[in-house]
């Protein structure tokens, strides 16, 4: 397993405050590495130093065994796809034009670009004929970020940076996009650096997790290593609120928050169960074919046995 990106004693200050005091980290190729930590811990700064949106004050960053400062900026960035939290599709362009931004700069032929665009749309379960010429303000949040991902993949770069890509989405879209990325990764094997502050998302997405706190890497490991053997108090505390090892001991709240269960607009309040109810407590109803209705944050969700089964499937380590 080769190394794609290597931070060596990187230091970065903003207005005199050391956001990244001294960071060393290697990111393996063709796998998903998640940078996780509370907001302000320096994970986004670390990510943006890879494609030189932010320049390190000292230390070195190597991409593909070459210093990023030695690259022609355009050459570097065309090798690294970028997905933003704000999605940031260009509102003056259609879906297809957004996807074609980098291929066009690389002077690929129009026919090649169109073929690739259609292929990408299909792989993200969007119908090419319906979506190609659609204006971006007509897309839902989930659709828009799919296009954001396609735009990053359009020139087939070996590396993708994802900066909290799903944190602005609703739970259902978030879960669908997480699944989409994991699904695509089984075929594409990109080097992915994925930033999130959501520990559950980190556990779900990462082949490797680098936990950051106050600009430092406090632990690097696989999800089960992190969960089972937290390096210190900080990591243990960060992951304290995450899903228990016994999925049946989890609350229905976690399952709904992960995007399972259908939102109900009507229905009486009679047989609602609170979101804090443990999964184990409703197994009897579910196995007898009943739908469990969950009250969560003022909304009502209908949870079926199928939903729970699908949820459990994603929880295997």
């Amino acid at each position: 397993m080769g190394t794609m990106i290597e931070f060596d004693h990187v230091h970065k200050e903003f207005n005199g405050a050391a956001v990244i005091p001294d960071l060393s980290l290697t990111i393996p190729e063709r796998e998903i590495t998640v940078l996780v930590g509370r907001s302000g811990c320096g994970k986004t700064t670390t990510l943006k130093m890879i494609n030189a949106l932010i320049k390190a004050d000292s230390g070195t960053i190597k991409y593909n065994d070459r210093l990023v400062t030695d690259y022609n900026l355009q050459e570097l960035r065309w090798q690294i796809g970028y997905v933003l939290q704000q999605i940031a599709l260009f509102p003056n362009m259609t879906v297809a034009q957004n996807i074609a931004v980098i291929p066009e700069m690389r002077r690929e032929s129009a026919a090649d670009i169109e073929r690739r665009t259609r292929e990408l749309l299909r792989s993200c379960s969007l119908d090419p004929d319906t979506y190609m010429n659609r204006a971006v303000d007509e897309l839902s949040g989930g659709e828009a970020q799919r296009v954001g991902i396609m735009r990053a993949l359009a020139a087939d770069p070996p590396t993708i940076l994802m900066d909290e890509p799903f944190s602005a989405l609703d739970p259902l879209s978030r879960r669908q996009l997480q699944d989409l990325v994991l699904d695509l990764q089984t075929k594409l094997h990109k080097t992915v650096v994925f930033v999130t502050h959501d520990m559950n998302e980190a556990l779900k997405m990462g082949d490797h997790i680098a936990v950051m706190d106050a600009g430092q890497i406090v632990q690097v490991g696989t999800p089960s290593e992190i969960r089972n053997n937290p390096a210190d108090e900080v990591v243990a505390k960060l992951f304290a609120g995450t899903k228990q090892d016994d999925p049946f001991a989890r609350s229905l709240d976690e399952i709904v928050a992960d995007g399972y269960g259908a939102l109900q607009s009507s229905g009486d309040a009679a047989d609602l169960v609170p979101a804090s109810t443990k999964l184990a407590a409703v197994i009897t109803e579910l196995t007898s074919g009943q739908t469990v209705r969950v009250a969560r944050a003022g909304q009502k969700y209908a949870l079926t046995a199928g939903d729970v089964l699908r949820y459990l499937t994603t929880q295997r380590n």
Partner: peptide, 23 residues
């Protein structure tokens, strides 16, 4: 202009002129 759009343009390797004209 939303700064995230400008950041996206930079991250996609748009040069100054292209960014001006396209975005």
């Amino acid at each position: 202009i939303d700064p995230s759009l400008l950041e996206a343009a930079d991250a996609f390797g748009m040069k100054r002129w292209r960014k001006l004209i396209k975005v």
